[in-house]
């Protein structure tokens, strides 16, 4: 591992794969096919994009003009805020992989993750300049901000759809169906998690009250 880090080729591959994200977002069908089939992508680059997305998201809180974004700092929990990206991402990757793998999807779990992260590229790419831009506009020009902000999200969403079609080698109709089913799977997982946690809470509460009762009687 350390030895690999010392090699120049490692960095060349890393930057090459990172640069490939730019090709992916402009040529989604071709790009995402090559991402896995031609091994043009790398996990390191995918992680970088994800970390960039998270960083931009956090930086936005502080540096976006108050005209567009006001943060109630008293109630902000940075970990929960990061989880608002990571948690849906995790649910989607797992849900999508779990379903598609049963229906001839060719993508592996890691590949689904990698492609989804690559598809997030427009977010940091647009939101970061937008964050700076927001400090130079008035409310009358707020539409530019909103429009560009929407573009970054819609672009990323379309890229995810395109990416999934390419990695799983699905036709578009089947792909759209599985995107929809993935969303349902996410909901089911959320439901199960909430059920699990509330059960645990109840279970713990039972033992705590039991202990209290015993201490009370002693």
């Amino acid at each position: 591992m350390i030895a690999a880090l010392k090699k120049k080729e490692t960095y060349q591959h890393y930057f090459g794969s990172l640069k490939f994200a730019l090709y992916c977002i402009t040529h989604p069908l071709d790009g995402f096919w090559d991402l896995t089939h031609e091994r043009r992508g790398s996990y390191a680059a995918a992680n970088t994009i994800l970390i960039l997305t998270l960083m931009v998201r956090v930086m936005k809180l502080r540096y976006t003009s108050f005209i567009f974004l006001n943060v109630y700092w008293e109630e902000l929990n940075i970990f929960l805020y990061l989880a608002s990206v990571l948690f849906p991402l995790m649910l989607f990757v797992v849900g999508n992989w779990a379903l598609t793998t049963l229906f001839d999807g060719k993508g592996r779990l890691g590949q689904v993750y990698m492609a989804t992260c690559y598809a997030l590229t427009p977010y940091p790419l647009i939101q970061l300049p937008l964050m700076v831009f927001s400090n130079f506009v008035t409310v009358d020009e707020a539409e530019f901000y909103s429009a560009l902000s929407a573009v970054s999200l819609v672009w990323a969403a379309l890229l995810i759809v395109a990416a999934m079609a390419q990695i799983h080698e699905f036709k578009m109709s089947k792909n759209l169906l599985f995107m929809f089913v993935s969303l349902i799977a996410m909901l089911v997982m959320v439901f199960l998690l909430m059920l699990f946690f509330s059960m645990i809470t109840q279970g713990v509460a039972y033992f705590i009250s039991l202990a209290r009762e015993i201490m009370f009687r002693l």
């Binding site: 567009f68 974004l69 109630y72 902000l76 929990n77 929960l80 805020y81």
Partner: peptide, 13 residues
């Protein structure tokens, strides 16, 4: 738009 962030926070909380 401005309120969304607070709404989202409320949701996570």
């Amino acid at each position: 738009m401005k309120k969304t962030i607070k709404g989202m926070l409320a949701l996570t909380i």
